[in-house]
Write a protein that binds this DNA or RNA. Structure first.
Length: 99
DNA sequence: TGCGTGACTTGAC
DNA sequence: CGTCAAGCCACGC
């Protein structure tokens, strides 16, 4: 059984282009309904090659600050994921369903 | 072994 | 719809 970190990274790596997942979704998928913070904590490391930009919070917004935040929205926009008013992404439309 | 910390979440006001 | 507070998890020191 690999560390929780690896399982989180493996799940993030499976998120298809043009789709997004929330920290809570990933945590739930790994069997930790209340482990959203752990997912965020793990994402701090952000291993190279991981689609980190496809992970957002339950509010449909980026949890990053400063330039990293803008960078995330830019990458998502390039994949067709548009942010609405207030930089909010429509989870109903872009949420990764096959998780 | 114990405590602080963070890219969270949800329910009240 | 914005802000606040409390709950929850794993890791590092």
């Amino acid at each position: 059984m690999p560390p929780i970190f690896d399982r989180i990274y493996a799940t993030v790596a499976r998120i298809p282009s043009g789709r997004v997942a929330t920290y809570g979704d990933i945590a739930l998928h790994l069997g930790m309904p209340q482990g959203a913070r752990t997912v965020g904590w793990a994402m701090r490391k952000c291993p190279h090659g991981l689609p980190w930009h496809r992970v957002i919070n339950a509010q449909g917004k980026s949890s990053l600050r400063g330039e990293a935040r803008e960078r995330q929205y830019a990458l998502l926009a390039k994949e067709g994921v548009g942010a609405g008013i207030g930089g909010r992404i429509d989870l109903e439309q872009y949420r990764w369903q096959e998780i």
